[in-house]
Simulated scan of single mutants.
Amino acid sequence: MADAATTVNPQITDSLTQVNTKVVGETPAMAMGNLLMSTSHALSNSAHNAVATQQQGQITMHAATVQGINSLMGVGSAVIGRVSGSVIEK
């Protein structure tokens, strides 16, 4: 006969077995949830970076367009100034 101090109630062992089974059963679902969360976070960061890059590209394009128009307008003024100067000299 087993000693009373070393005997474990069968309800306790059943409870521990059920808890261990529950933890082992939930592990794949938790791992998949963590994978999906990290993947969605990475994809949202990627989309945010793409939008920021497009905005910076648009700003650069606008600046280049303004510089080009300023150059064209400056050339026109210089030509008009030379023509007027030559007309006045004659």
Rank of each mutant, 00 (worst) to 15 (best):
S44I: 10
G68S: 13
N70A: 09
V51Y: 10
A64P: 04
L35N: 10
G33Q: 10
R82T: 10
M32D: 14
V79G: 01
V51A: 15
V83I: 09
S40V: 11
S77A: 14
V19Y: 02
I12L: 12
S71Y: 04
N34Y: 11
A5K: 13
Q11E: 05
M1V: 12
V24N: 05
A42Y: 05
L16H: 07
G85D: 14
Q67E: 09
G57V: 11
M61N: 14
A31S: 08
S77E: 13
G85H: 12
T6P: 01
N20K: 08
L16P: 00
M73I: 09
Q58R: 08
S84W: 06
Q18L: 09
P10N: 02
L43K: 12
M1Y: 15
N45I: 14
M1S: 14
Q18G: 08
N45M: 14
N20V: 06
S71M: 01
V8F: 03
T17G: 02
N70G: 01
A5G: 06
T27C: 05
V23W: 05
A52R: 08
P10V: 05
L72T: 10
V75K: 07
T6W: 03
G68R: 10
V79C: 02
I88Q: 01
S84E: 08
N34Q: 15
D14L: 05
P28A: 00
T6K: 07
V23F: 01
S71L: 04
V24R: 04
S15N: 11
T17S: 08
I59L: 09
Q54N: 11
Q11D: 08
L16S: 03
N20H: 03
V8M: 07
A50G: 15
D14E: 12
I88F: 06
